[in-house]
Amino acid sequence: MTYLSPFRRLLAVSASAPMLALTLALACAVPLASCGQGREEHPPLEGAEIGGPFTLFDKAGKPHTWDSFKGQWRIVYFGYTFCPDACPMDVQAMMKGFALFTRDHAADAAKVQPIFITIDPARDTREIVGQWTGAFGPRLLGLTGSAAQVKQAADAFAVYYKKGENTPGGYLMDHSRIAYLMDPDGKPIAMLPVDKGPEAVASELAKWVN
């Protein structure tokens, strides 16, 4: 799977949703301009139409809706457990960064819920997703559902995904790679820089979560 930086990940989405990519680009550009003028910095994704209703299930079969997390900061990443490289690297950086943030800001970290949502429901059963996310720590919540339920969630977060060709080891999934930080009202704040490592993720969390 080709590795994409956070900005190029947005471009990966633009093939399916060019207007959304433009909206996100503008949302990122405006704060930079205002910072240059000495104004208070705004969240990079402020005003972007990211996030929305869904119903998915955890390893115990418990349903979770987007409103279930109301009042909590949320880290949301879409991937799949059979991913050979990208997803494990991203989630590892995300959760190691979250652990560093927890070490230094325990009270704020207690208000954050990291979430992994599969884009491969045909193979990622509740049990498989639960086992996979458990390897990254007890705080990471893994969610799956029917193909239609997963699509609803992915569409709400402007996530691109597509089943690849079959190979001797099984098929791969092509997908955008973004770890969204969402505020307690479910509004998008920033993309966590998982490509830059745990320290960068922890720094970004400390910048916005309070």
Results as ranks from 00 to 15, higher is better:
residue 7 F to L: 14
residue 184 P to Y: 03
residue 102 T to L: 01
residue 210 N to F: 10
residue 121 P to T: 03
residue 70 K to Y: 01
residue 178 I to M: 11
residue 168 P to N: 06
residue 135 A to T: 07
residue 166 N to G: 03
residue 98 F to V: 02
residue 94 M to I: 00
residue 154 A to I: 07
residue 40 E to R: 13
residue 77 Y to G: 06
residue 102 T to E: 09
residue 185 D to P: 04
residue 16 S to H: 11
residue 86 A to T: 07
residue 137 G to F: 08
residue 194 V to N: 04
residue 208 W to E: 07
residue 168 P to Y: 01
residue 121 P to L: 09
residue 43 P to W: 04
residue 173 M to D: 03
residue 8 R to F: 14
residue 128 I to L: 13
residue 79 G to S: 02
residue 210 N to L: 07
residue 56 L to E: 10
residue 10 L to N: 10
residue 153 A to G: 02
residue 167 T to A: 13
residue 72 Q to R: 15
residue 96 K to H: 10
residue 46 E to F: 12
residue 51 G to P: 11
residue 175 H to Q: 08
residue 166 N to R: 09
residue 188 P to M: 03
residue 187 K to L: 15
residue 23 T to C: 13
residue 28 C to R: 14
residue 157 F to L: 05
residue 18 P to A: 09
residue 150 V to G: 07
residue 52 G to F: 02
residue 59 K to R: 13
residue 133 T to E: 01
residue 68 S to V: 09
residue 68 S to D: 12
residue 75 I to Y: 00
residue 82 F to H: 10
residue 7 F to P: 13
residue 200 A to P: 04
residue 66 W to T: 11
residue 100 L to Q: 12
residue 69 F to Q: 04
residue 41 E to K: 10
residue 86 A to V: 13
residue 140 L to I: 03
residue 15 A to F: 10
residue 184 P to Q: 03
residue 138 P to A: 12
residue 165 E to H: 10
residue 130 G to A: 07
residue 79 G to C: 04
residue 48 A to Q: 09
residue 6 P to F: 09
residue 82 F to G: 00
residue 119 I to N: 02
residue 49 E to V: 14
residue 71 G to N: 05
residue 122 A to G: 09
residue 29 A to T: 09
residue 131 Q to V: 11
residue 89 M to F: 09
residue 90 D to S: 06
residue 110 A to R: 02
residue 36 G to Q: 13
residue 5 S to K: 10
residue 152 Q to P: 07
residue 92 Q to D: 10
residue 55 T to F: 00
residue 163 K to F: 03
residue 118 T to G: 00
residue 83 C to I: 01
residue 31 P to N: 07
residue 46 E to G: 12
residue 19 M to Q: 15
